[in-house]
Design a protein around this nucleic acid. Structure first.
Lengths: 229, 229
DNA sequence: ATGTATGAAATCGTATACGATTCATCATGG
DNA sequence: CCATGATGAATCGTATACGATTTCATACAT
């Protein structure tokens, strides 16, 4: 305690980080719709900070692709352009596929159990029609599968991809009607593959295909050509 | 003189960007050795700027992994830890493989010609022993192969990966003696594969293997276990 | 009526100033 | 002699202030 009253805890995160967390949560949580304009002074006032840390937070969000920043004009929440969605999904298919493959050899029996439990939850969400919950559980399930990836860079890229995707409200499954059910089945196959210690390359391709299938379903519904990889 | 003499050209980049460019060039150019300490006020004085834009530039470099930043302590040029090198190479192998595969169908005959010319240059660099030039030409050659990748996210990740790698002086080939010669041969095979419009998956695996081979050579020399993917 | 010039308002960009934190140094007691 | 706590310098974190740029509305001329 430096002065007397307030402990001034050294572990307290900086205001830049606080602003970053708040804005990130709002964007990925869907509170801020795409195209929403982020004005530095307004946000600063609301948070009780100065504009400087807010500015830094926004630049950081820009680097992660969650907001678009134009010089001397301002920042807006990144839009959901169809091609942007395509590119994000494609990138994530590659990265998450690799992450899942790298994590597969290190997965434990407990992880497998948890994954199966979550997938059962997903089935229940389907029956009771809880899309919100479905999306959340789906995130957790995949996080288990790629979580042991020993390469922090790749892990970081996966997280960024998921963030961007979550920011695009109507998270994949709302967009394509029949997709969710198939997705759950693919989870079963993928989990079985990992459990059996299959070839890492096979696992990678399965994980990639799982995501690419969602993408293709989306593309088919929106009548656009899908590029193969 | 901002009022009358100088038109105050609107195209001038902001000081943040200028600082970013300068620092990035110094780091990737090898002028700043790993571990070098970046003090805000010193850099600001040297560039004639205030600390604010310099700070922003450094945070941006941090996001790209070129500098390490510690709160209330300062920034240092990111180190060349062996495991960091491994992780960066592994990530790049995945990303660049995908980028090359996605770009392959869009490549032109001119590109193929240029690639072959550059690879011939590489051979000459080997004979005349010009490692610096080899690294530069090698960059250009790969840039041609993945350049047409239609996914800007993936392209961006590739560039970041190369930046990080370039920042690690002793760029791969100085580290492993016999590797460069084999690398040139693999280029020939990869170019032929792309020219023949081979299966994109095959191209992806070849491009990935090309980079993984460099990584494995490095690992073998440093007696560490290589993880398979 | 439409296009263009002019002005004001909004917002960003940067400089300066000061408080907060970390780290090293040194004195002090065991 | 070593451990521990105080003290100071170096550096980062943020607030405030002001200048620069963009944008939009308005008035004017064609």
């Amino acid at each position: 305690m430096s002065t007397t009253a307030t402990p001034a805890r050294t572990e307290a995160r900086s205001k830049s980080e606080q602003a970053y967390e708040v804005l990130k949560d709002r964007i990925t949580g869907g509170d801020l719709v795409a195209g929403y304009r982020l004005v530095l002074s307004s946000i600063a006032d609301e948070l009780g900070f100065s504009v400087v840390p807010v500015r830094e937070a926004i630049r950081r969000l820009e680097a992660e692709g969650l907001v678009k920043f134009e010089r001397n004009v301002g920042a807006t929440v990144a839009g959901v352009d169809a091609t942007l969605y395509l590119h994000t999904m494609q990138t994530l298919s590659v990265i998450e596929g690799a992450a899942t493959a790298l994590a597969a050899p290190l997965i434990t029996a407990v992880d497998i159990d948890n994954a199966r439990r979550l997938n059962a939850e997903l089935r229940r969400c389907l029956e009771e029609f809880e899309p919100q919950r479905f999306t959340r559980i789906n995130n957790e399930l995949h996080a288990i599968l790629y979580g042991h990836c020993p390469n922090p860079h790749i892990l970081d890229l996966v997280h960024r991809g998921w963030n961007r995707l979550n920011a695009m409200r109507a998270s994949s499954f709302d967009l394509v009607p029949g997709r969710a059910r198939k997705s759950v089945e693919e989870h079963d196959q993928l989990i079985a593959l990992i459990e059996s210690r299959a070839d890492v390359h096979e696992i990678e391709m399965a994980a990639r295909a799982h995501r690419t299938a969602t993408l293709n379903a989306y593309m088919a519904q929106h009548q656009q050509p899908a590029s193969a990889i």
